[in-house]
Structure formats: structure tokens, C-alpha cells
Design a protein around this nucleic acid. Structure first.
Ligand SMILES: [Mn+2]
Ligand SMILES: [Mn+2]
Ligand SMILES: [Mn+2]
Ligand SMILES: [Mn+2]
Lengths: 232, 232
DNA sequence: ATAAATTTTTAGGTTAGACTAAATATTTAT
DNA sequence: ATAAATATTTAGTCTAACCTAAAAATTTAT
């Protein structure tokens, strides 16, 4: 998907991207389908918890460095370079999350803040050795795919639980929301990645769902259901 | 050595110390016997590769935060708080160095730069779990002691090879210089931590030393000898 | 004891990355 | 089509962490 020439370029320029720039690239990547769809400065500001005016400044700098495409009033996309750097930051983030859960006894709701720091550590050897040490995992503790060293990952094949027919079941493979509140809700209700979940009933009134797991039968709100993805 | 009240205080204020402040605290700690002996702004500037005028600014800020004691023209020492924070940063640095060597196939000359980044990651759980995961090591890959969670470590009991009598031997336990050049010299000459080294002869002319290991007999310069410490 | 050399501080300036408030462009509603 | 609402950019500030050059203090040499 990315040329090896580009990879080598990025590897060499890699070190001159600041922590703040990495966070912007990541935000644009996440908001705009890997940076391919234009995102507004406002959307970025909200994601990054800053102000639109700060985003305008930074986005100009990214365009200057050929990491983003920016047209006034028309939003931002990523260049190939920008997209690859973003993917490599996300790769590190997710590998560190695996490390924290698998090796250091963190729970899936504890890893994100620390991974936000670790994702900025700059060392190619570190990330590649970490990958090897963890057994080259393909998914992080929340079911998100881990990009390989070229920034690529297999397309997600899980489907939202709301699109599954009554009576059918699947394995919980991905949670689309990694917020503390949501993950703690799942913990409290004994729902974890890998659980087999069966859709028992759908309530048209509030669009809630009755589901059944090995442990229990329970009702989940539409809001919760939106964030649960199953592998069939 | 540190009161637990202080530890709790530091744990709570910990997060408001910047990366740059941590580096200054570490420099003062290393230059002035754990910060107990006054160090000059020039010495700090050289260590940190900055300018004395920048150090003066920062040192005022550290004094402001009650992390350092600073009297104009008379150098800097650390307060108890400053000393503990410095020790905890060094703890992280050395634990990460162990991790890199033991788990990620780094060599002892490759770890320092990455550890310089990792030492600033802020998470109490991370450092304590890392410690446990590594089996609570007491020394890093260069033989330096690892402070415990209260910042304490056992006094070093190794002795410089120049102080050992002809004919006696010991185990290489510490290298006082972790520069790339020095560690690569040791690699090239097959000298590693844990090796048994015997002092065969001392040459008064240039103060060089003839030593013998399991693999070889060789001459080392006084410059090299100064950095080798043995456990008897 | 005084002058010279050295060290340290002060004064003033730069840059990255943030902010607020005002100006301008775009979108939505009438 | 025009006005109102919303989104975005510009202009001007701020702070942390650096810097250089000049001033002041301290140390060393005569
Ligand atoms: Mn995360
Ligand atoms: Mn995740
Ligand atoms: Mn080191
Ligand atoms: Mn070390």
C-alpha cells in the first residue's frame, strides 16, 4: 500500500516530527478515514481538546512539511507521508497497549493514557523488537487492528451488533469506544473481548437490545450497542 | 531514607514536573552526590548540553518549586523532594535499560538514548509493574544500582580496578562510563559485566594495566582502567 | 592589594505551541 | 436573495525553554 521508497523516507525524517505534530496527524487519520477525507479544523480541535485557531496554525505547518494537504476553509487531508507517520504512531500506541495488558497486569481501561505517552518514543528498533516480543499481535486490547511496519492492516471484518439478526450470535471482537466510562461499564457487566454474545431481542421503542452471554442475559441500550462489534 | 509522607507528596506532585525539569534534577543529582553537594550552573550546562544562562533560569524555577536550593553564585543542591524525584527518574531509566537488554535484544551500548526518552513516562503503576515484571533487578546493564520505589539503593561495594593489588582478581561489576565509544571498546575487546578479571601487572610509565580474563591477556590504558569497577 | 581571568547572572530576543477576540468566509434559514 | 447563524482564519498575546551579548561577581595571578 505504501512504497518502500516512501517508507525509507519516513524512517529518515521520522525523528524531526514533534510530539504535537504526531498527535495532529493521528487525529486527522482517525477523523478522516485514514486522512483520505477532508476534516475540519473544528473537528480536529474537538478531538485534540484545543481551539480551532491553534489547529489552523498547526495544519499550515503540516502542509509546509508535506504531511498534510490544506486548503483554506476546506479542511485537511493527509499526504502519503503524513498517513504513514500517523499509522506508525498508531502502531506503537496499540503495541504498547498490548504490552501493558499482557505483561504488566493493566486492565483495558487503564492502558490508554500511558499508551498516549509511549506512542511518541522514537526508536525503530524499539517498536520492531516490541512487536516481536509480543508475538506480532494483530489487534490491541480493544480489538483495534495493529498496523504492520509499513502502516498496513487487514480490513476489519467484524460487524456492529445492531446489524445482526435476532437469534444469531458472534464473538465480541471490537469496542469502538475506548473511554474510561464505557470500558468500566463493560467490566461491571462482565462483558469482555472474546465473549460469545447472542442477540435475543430487539426493542423498537428505545432501540435497546436483549443479549445473552455465557454468564447472563441482559438488556443493553442502543448507545452501548453502537459500540459493540462481533465476529460471526 | 525518605519519609513516607514525602513519598506521598512527591507522588501527588509528580505529574506537574516537566520533562526538562526532570532532566535538570537528574543532572544535579548525578553531579553533586545525589544533590547534596553544591554544583555550579556551568557544570550543569555542560552535562545537559545547554548554556549557563539557561541553567540559571531553570534553577530559579526549581527553587521556586522547592525542588532545589539555590544561592546566587554559590551553586545548587537538591531539596528532599527534588532528590526523590531525581531518584525516581533514574529508577525508571535503569529499569527500562534492563527491559531493553533482557527482553528486547538491545545491547548495552544501544539502550541509553531510548531510556532517556522512556524515563519521562509518567505512571506509577507502569514503573512498579515493570519492576515486578523484570524480577526487581538491583542493577542496570552497566552495573549501576536501581533505586527502589522510595528512591533508595544499597551502597556500591565494587572497587576501581586501579586500586586492586597485582595478582588479585574480581568480577567486573560496574562501568562508570556508558558512552557509546567506551562500551563499543569493551565489546570489541570481549569485556562484559560478570567477567572475572585478574590484575597481572601495573606499568608505572603510562599507568597502564595488564589484565587477564577467561578469554585473553591484554593491556588496558589508565583511561580505560579508571572506568572499570570490580567486585572482589 | 590590585589587575586579569573566569564564572555567573542579567537583559533582551527567539521559537513552538497554545490562547482570546475580532474579522472574514461559508452555510443555513427565511 | 438576503439575513442570520455558524465555521474558519487572522491578529495579537502568553509561557516554557532555549539562546547571545553585556554586566557583575568571584577567583586567580601578579
Ligand atoms: Mn488507546
Ligand atoms: Mn486501543
Ligand atoms: Mn543510561
Ligand atoms: Mn545505565
Amino acid at each position: 500500500m505504501y512504497s518502500s521508497k516512501l517508507c525509507i523516507f519516513v524512517i529518515n525524517t521520522y525523528l524531526v516530527v514533534t510530539l504535537s505534530e504526531e498527535n495532529y496527524l493521528k487525529a486527522i487519520y482517525h477523523l478522516g478515514k485514514q486522512g483520505s477525507v477532508a476534516v475540519s479544523t473544528n473537528a480536529i480541535a474537538e478531538k485534540i481538546e484545543s481551539k480551532a485557531s491553534s489547529v489552523t496554525d498547526m495544519v499550515k505547518k503540516l502542509a509546509e512539511k508535506d504531511l498534510a494537504n490544506y486548503v483554506k476553509y476546506q479542511g485537511v487531508t493527509l499526504t502519503e507521508k503524513g498517513r504513514l507517520i500517523a499509522a506508525l504512531v498508531i502502531r506503537k500506541h496499540r503495541l504498547w497497549e498490548v504490552f501493558l495488558v499482557e505483561k504488566l497486569n493493566f486492565t483495558w481501561d487503564e492502558v490508554h493514557d500511558v499508551a498516549e505517552q509511549l506512542e511518541h518514543i522514537k526508536s525503530l528498533k524499539l517498536v520492531n523488537e516490541l512487536d516481536r516480543f509480543l508475538g506480532c499481535p494483530t489487534h490491541d486490547p480493544h480489538g483495534d487492528p495493529i498496523p504492520d511496519k509499513d502502516g498496513n492492516y487487514a480490513p476489519i471484518k467484524s460487524v456492529n451488533i445492531l446489524e445482526i439478526k435476532k437469534g444469531e450470535q458472534g464473538v465480541l471482537a471490537l469496542v469502538k469506544n475506548s473511554s474510561d466510562a464505557f470500558l468500566k461499564y463493560l467490566n461491571k457487566n462482565n462483558l469482555a473481548l472474546g465473549d460469545v454474545i447472542k442477540v435475543v431481542d430487539f426493542e423498537p421503542f428505545d432501540k435497546s437490545l436483549t443479549i445473552e452471554t455465557a454468564h447472563q442475559k441482559m438488556i443493553i441500550s442502543n448507545e452501548v450497542a453502537k459500540n459493540l462489534y462481533l465476529r460471526l
